[in-house]
């Protein structure tokens, strides 16, 4: 089986005023269809840059992103992104925000009624159908992020990219949303890549955890498989030995071998 998504020897450097700073170097990774992969690393290690490269929002300096053996170098709805700060358009209601995506992606392929059903189905999936006529300013941070996820799912993406989706939320809301994402992943089997800096979140949600070394010229330090059966329950896992072992492995990587020197000083 060939890889669904392949990151083939990717380098990324930014040139600013004659100075070239190397952010990512020699990133190699293959992801299978339906897999849930987390990318974890200290801040500034280039994990968001990596996600932007996969999304096509930034161009690679060298190497290639291959989705189903086809190179992608520009953004598109088949790689939908859930942004950290939700990025809902504040002048549109929840429904209209999703409708913007749905009518652009499926405008010609589906009738108006079909599109409406599709929007409502995705709102139901994140349990936000009740707030369809609210504007983003009128709903809580967690609800906005749910709508952001619904908008991304409504594009029927081949890959769902989550850019620290729960970073700005409080712990309880975050747990709710993690459960929601797990539930959606088990129902839809969507291939998902999530950027996070939360070790528990990474272990709880992922099939594999990609650990990044520190920049400059960050690369993949280690990939950890999480051999936990699904569905997973956070309460049962909190004392599960495999869970604790995975957690320890990530913590050791982050805080022993690749300690973030700037933050420690």
């Amino acid at each position: 089986m060939t890889a669904y998504l392949k990151l083939d020897h990717i380098d990324k450097s930014f040139a600013r005023g004659g100075q070239v700073s190397e952010v990512l170097k020699d990133i190699r990774l293959t992801i299978d269809k339906g897999e849930f992969v987390s990318i974890i690393g200290h801040s500034g290690c280039g994990k968001s840059t990596l996600l932007n490269l996969i999304a096509g929002l930034t161009k690679v300096t060298a190497g290639a992103v291959l989705l189903e053996n086809k190179e992608v170098d520009s953004p598109g709805p088949e790689r939908a992104v859930v942004f950290q700060n939700h990025s809902l358009l504040p002048w549109l209601t929840v429904y209209e925000n999703i409708n913007l995506a749905v009518s652009k992606v499926f405008g010609s392929a589906r009738t108006k009624a079909e599109r409406h059903d599709w929007i409502m189905r995705n709102l139901d999936l994140v349990q936000m159908a009740h707030a369809r006529d609210k504007r983003p300013a009128e709903i809580s941070g967690g609800m906005k992020q749910r709508v952001g996820i619904a908008r991304a799912l409504a594009m029927e993406p081949k890959i769902l990219l989550l850019d620290e989706p729960f970073g700005a939320l409080d712990a309880l809301t975050r747990a709710h949303l993690q459960d929601a994402v797990m539930d959606i992943h088990s129902r839809l089997g969507s291939t998902t890549i999530m950027i996070t800096h939360d070790v528990d979140e990474a272990v709880l949600l992922s099939d594999r955890i990609v650990m990044m070394t520190n920049g400059p010229a960050a690369t993949i330090g280690e990939v950890l498989a999480v051999p936990l059966a699904r569905p997973r329950s956070r309460i049962e896992l909190s004392s599960d030995r495999t869970f604790l072992r995975c957690r320890e492995a990530v913590l050791k990587f982050l805080y022993e071998r690749h300690r973030f020197v700037e933050a420690a000083e």
Partner: peptide, 26 residues
Amino acid sequence: PEDYRNVSRILRLNQLEFFVKIMVPA
């Protein structure tokens, strides 16, 4: 905001759609 531009790029809005749906309201 850069995020709105990113949203429009992911949706592949064309120039006119971007102008009407994102730029003018923003």
